[in-house]
Structure formats: structure tokens, C-alpha cells
Simulated scan of single mutants.
Amino acid sequence: MIIAVDFDGTIVEHRYPEIGKEIPFATETLKLLIAEKHKLILWTVREGELLDNALDWCHEHGIEFYAVNQDYPEEKKVDKGFSRKLKADLFIDDRNLGGLPHWGIIYRMIHENRAYEPFVAQRQSYAAKKSWLERCFGIGRNRYHR
């Protein structure tokens, strides 16, 4: 698959124009996807020096993208009328509807070719098994009920 990946808020915490701390398991997951022959495109609003900084950070963490802000590495940018809309199979971005799932779930969705809904249903099923106190306050049954 061709997968477009945002940088700020997706790979690292939001600290734009600075670079935030890595979001847990982001780089490990991206490396697994690259090893599985997926083509990753860095898709970010960053340009110029800010983009170079993000690319350097990714390189230092072992992530090399197939392309950056374009469909393929050899694509020629045209100033007038150029659209940065990518032709990707999947977009990983913290600004999508529902927010950014945990990187472990993202990997399983891609690796197992599964939709997000079963993961949400599984989480809701687990939450439904908890008591009201557990769901609201994290207080376990065994703590007060013997």
C-alpha cells in the first residue's frame, strides 16, 4: 500500500515549529511497515528548513520515506495550480475523524487488512464489562467488594 503519514501530532507530539517527543511506538510501527514493503510518504505542512528538520529527525530514528509531500520521488512540482493532494491508499493523521488510534492498532489494521470498527467494538465491549466505578474512576471491584 501507499501510506501518507503526517508528522506533527502523528509521529511526534505537537510542538510546531519545534519537534516534539516521539509518540510511543510511532517509529517502530513505521519501520515495520517499511519492512513489509509499504511505500510511506511523509505528508506534512512543513516546508523549507522546518521540513529538513523533520526529515533529519526521521532519518536519525531510522525512517526513510518513499516520497515527501508528493506522490513519488521524481514528481515535478508546478507552482501554479499544483495540488498537494496525494494518491495514497491510506492516510495516517491525528486530525482525522476520531483522532489518532494507538500505533499498535494502526499496525494491526494495516497488517491484518482490518477496519477500525472491530477495534472500537472490542474496546467498548471491554469497557461495558467494567462497573460504573471502574469506568469513571478506575476503581476496581476487588478493592471494595470482597
Rank of each mutant, 00 (worst) to 15 (best):
R146E: 13
V5P: 00
R146Y: 10
V5N: 01
P24Y: 09
H38Y: 10
L100F: 04
V45C: 05
Q70M: 15
N53S: 12
V120A: 14
L33W: 04
V78I: 13
L97V: 12
T10P: 04
I110D: 09
F91E: 10
E28Q: 13
R146F: 12
S131T: 15
A88W: 02
K87A: 05
M1Q: 03
I105P: 08
G104H: 13
T29A: 13
E74D: 15
H59Q: 11
L86Q: 01
N53Q: 14
Y66F: 15
A4W: 01
R141Q: 12
L30I: 10
K31M: 14
T10G: 06
W57L: 02
G9Q: 10
S125W: 06
G9A: 05
T10H: 07
L32W: 05
I110E: 04
I106E: 00
T10R: 06
T27C: 15
R15T: 09
I19F: 11
D52K: 13
R46G: 04
V12H: 03
A67Q: 04
P101Y: 10
D94K: 10
D94I: 08
K21P: 05
E22V: 11
I2V: 15
Q70Y: 09
V12E: 03
A35D: 13
L100P: 05
I110P: 08
I110W: 05
Q122E: 15
C58S: 15
L97I: 10
D89K: 01
V5H: 04
G138P: 09
T29H: 07
L90A: 02
N142P: 00
E18H: 13
E117G: 00
Y144D: 02
I139M: 12
Q122I: 05
I3F: 09
H102S: 12
D52I: 04
R123N: 07
L86P: 01
P73V: 11
A121K: 14
Q122H: 14
I110N: 02
P101K: 02
L55N: 07
L42K: 01
E49K: 14
F65C: 00
F7V: 09
K21G: 06
Y116N: 03
Q70G: 11
E36G: 05
P24D: 12
S83N: 12
A127Y: 04
P118L: 09
F7N: 03
P73W: 13
S125A: 13
G99P: 07
A121M: 10
F25T: 04
L100E: 06
Y66H: 12
G62A: 08
K80W: 12
I105M: 11
A115W: 00
L30W: 07
H102D: 15
T44Y: 03
L100M: 14
R123C: 02
Y72D: 11
G98S: 07
E64D: 11
G48I: 03
E13L: 06
N69K: 02
S131W: 01
D8G: 05
V68P: 06
D8N: 09
A35Q: 14
L33P: 03
E134H: 15
I92Q: 00
P73H: 11
F82C: 09
L133A: 14
G48S: 06
K80A: 08
Y126H: 07
L51F: 06
L90H: 01
I19N: 08
E13D: 12
E134Y: 10
M1H: 08
L97D: 08
N142H: 10
Q70C: 15
W132A: 05
F25N: 12
L33I: 01
K129I: 00
I106T: 07
T27Y: 14
Y126W: 04
T27E: 07
M109Q: 14
L32E: 13
R135W: 08
